[in-house]
């Protein structure tokens, strides 16, 4: 297993290098620059700014300089927000997104997986139809509809919860619910599908013939295999969910990472774009590795290789 993890990590590093290179040259090839503004700037000042950020050098040289810096953990200054480094921006906002994402994931798994199991076990009854219709609606309803609806109901009509900001646990509830319920819908459907496949297997009949109670059949015989589709989806979902959702963060005024993805791109903040890309890609690589390890742990027919 150690060999497998090391091999996959080395692969991951190659993937990250490739992603870094592609992003860097795409950003560099984009017309305009981080320093172009609507106001006219004296050429001397512009040249000074460019020299400060290293933009007076050829692109290839800039690439190797920035790569060396990144490998040393230095993502550089923000090209737009003066006096702030990319690392500072990420260090401020990533914990917020991480908290929101983790809470939302708990909601997603805590609701989605039991609902999926229940729907599969009680298939073609109202315990199947109701959760599955709700989850279909949950998938179809974008978070930018769901969020304002929840804010309207619990914030403005019932006046139970604050509708924006990030100042304490009561502020966490609505964004968590909006983000979590969306993923819960996915997990419910995936779990139901996986469980149904398992419940139709011959070995379930064998277990019944042994006198094993239904609950044991579901939890002991079917759950491992039934969770595989949900686990597979968990990898990319996890990376997405903890690196922040722009929509949810904007609706509820959460100072998380999601908004920075958009701002960095709109502002042509080259260093921030690269920093965020590396962060997101790293998360994806790690999550996928964890998912693969979980798959092998669940399915004895798979081996590390």
């Amino acid at each position: 297993m150690l060999k497998f993890v090391i091999a996959r990590l080395l692969q991951g590093i190659l993937v990250l290098l490739a992603i870094y290179a592609v992003t860097f040259f795409l950003v560099a090839a984009t017309p305009g620059s981080p320093f172009s503004t609507e106001r006219a700037i004296a050429p001397e000042i512009l040249a000074q700014i460019e020299a400060f950020y290293g933009y007076d050098k050829p692109t290839s040289e800039r690439f190797f300089t920035s790569l060396t810096n990144v490998l040393q953990g230095e993502f550089g200054p923000s090209a737009v927000y003066a006096n702030r480094t990319v690392t500072q921006i990420i260090a401020e906002s990533f914990p917020v997104s991480l908290l929101l994402g983790s809470l939302a994931l708990l909601v997603a798994l805590g609701i989605g997986i039991p609902a999926g199991i229940l729907a599969a076990v009680k298939r073609n009854t109202w315990l199947d139809y109701i959760p599955m219709s709700v989850s279909m609606a949950g998938i179809c309803l974008p978070t930018f509809v769901m969020g304002p609806l929840l804010a309207l109901l619990f914030g403005l009509i019932l006046n139970w919860l604050p509708v924006g900001g990030w100042f304490g646990p009561e502020f966490w509830i609505l964004p968590t619910a909006t983000l979590g319920l969306y993923y819960a819908a996915y997990f419910a459907r995936l779990t139901r599908g996986g469980m149904l496949e398992m419940l139709n297997q011959d070995f379930v009949r064998t277990a019944r013939a042994k006198g094993v109670p239904e609950t044991t059949i579901v939890l002991k015989h079917c759950l491992k295999g039934g969770l595989i589709p949900a686990i597979t989806f968990l990898g990319p979902a996890l990376a997405g969910i903890i690196s922040g959702s722009f929509v949810v963060e904007t609706i509820f005024q959460v100072p998380g990472l999601g908004q920075w993805f958009v701002r960095a791109a709109l502002n042509r903040d080259d260093f921030l774009v690269l920093g965020l890309t590396v962060l997101f890609a790293t998360l994806i690589v790690i999550m996928n590795l964890l998912v693969d390890i979980a798959q092998v742990a669940l399915n004895p027919r798979l081996k590390y290789d």
């Binding site: 297997q201 011959d202 070995f203 064998t206 013939a209 006198g211 015989h221 295999g225 669940l298």
Partner: peptide, 18 residues
């Protein structure tokens, strides 16, 4: 499983692979 047991046709699918 206690007083009446059963063996099935296809041993490849009748045992739980997990």
């Amino acid at each position: 499983g206690r007083r009446i047991s059963m063996i099935f046709q296809d041993p490849m699918t009748s045992l739980n692979p997990f």
